[in-house]
Simulated assay, not measured.
Amino acid sequence: MSAVLPASHTVFPFISADALAAALASGGVAVVYVAPDGGPLPAEPIPGSIGTALPAHYADPGDPARGRLPLPSPEAVRRWTAEADLDPDGDIVVYDAANGSAAARAWWVLTWAGLPRVRILDGGLGAWAARSGGAAPPPAQTAVPELAAIDTEAIAADFSAYRLFDARAAAAYAGDGKQPAHLPGAVSSPAGIWQDADGRLLPFAQREALARKLGLFDDDGRPVVAYCGSGVAAAYWIAAVQDLGVKAALYAGSWSAWSSDPARVAAAAPA
């Protein structure tokens, strides 16, 4: 199975702050703030923001076997979005006040649940506050992302059957050096490497070079899987490679689910 989609099927799930401002001025776009921990809207949110929370709206309650932030059911997502009066076929922009990972998890979950026109505000609330106010072209029309999830059992059955990418910081991937701290065979690829110093997505050419260095364009028949601590940074990783044509599944359980079984972790330790 190829890990790279044909160019005509690629998507770009980000929108600039200037483009969002233009869309808001013309009406017809819903703006959703994603709090990482269930907190209130920021002091100066984007006008008209609907407040949501990562653990309440984009995850089921944590469970050792499923991880800290397991995926909710698509039905549950469609239910609360209907209650929030979000048009399932309308334009939705999600954002956060941090590094974009919470917003990316919201993008992934909403799109996966059947809302096809969701975008991530590139650079989040910081980019909105720093927007130039200049004219911006409307975002290009793109295909609906093809998103897939994978669970612990599938990976544990034969982890060598997948190309695993760890989107956590390098220190988390490395651990203390005494015990395994990442999935066996996984490659470290922190979500932050796809961003500039302001938390905005790197230009296409730079991300293409990174992807090439990681071997993401080398189709060896194994599906690409992204994971992190609890399926949040990995969602940003997946969003960042969409327009490169890379198709990656989300392991939402991630390290928090994998490491819940000491025997599974010990079995991956080097001899």
Rank of each mutant, 00 (worst) to 15 (best):
G199T: 11
A154K: 06
A169C: 03
L164H: 00
L216R: 04
D166R: 03
A181V: 03
A205D: 15
P138A: 15
A148Q: 09
C228S: 15
D176H: 11
Y162M: 04
A140C: 06
I155R: 06
S189C: 10
A211G: 15
D166N: 10
G192D: 12
A172Q: 14
P223K: 04
D220S: 09
R207T: 01
S160W: 08
A174K: 09
A135Q: 10
R200H: 05
P223S: 09
K178W: 09
R207K: 08
A156N: 04
L216V: 11
D218C: 06
T142I: 13
V224Q: 01
P145K: 03
T142G: 15
V224P: 00
E153C: 09
L202Q: 10
F159I: 03
A172S: 15
D198P: 01
Q179I: 09
L164D: 00
K213Q: 13
V224F: 01
R163L: 13
P137Y: 11
D198F: 12
A191M: 13
D166L: 04
P145V: 01
P203R: 04
R200V: 01
L210P: 02
T142Y: 08
P223Y: 07
C228M: 09
H182E: 05
V224S: 02
P138K: 08
E146A: 11
P138F: 05
L183R: 01
I193A: 07
Q206T: 04
R207H: 05
L164A: 00
A186S: 12
D196K: 11
G215T: 05
L147D: 00
G175M: 12
F159M: 07
A181Q: 01
A136N: 02
D218A: 12
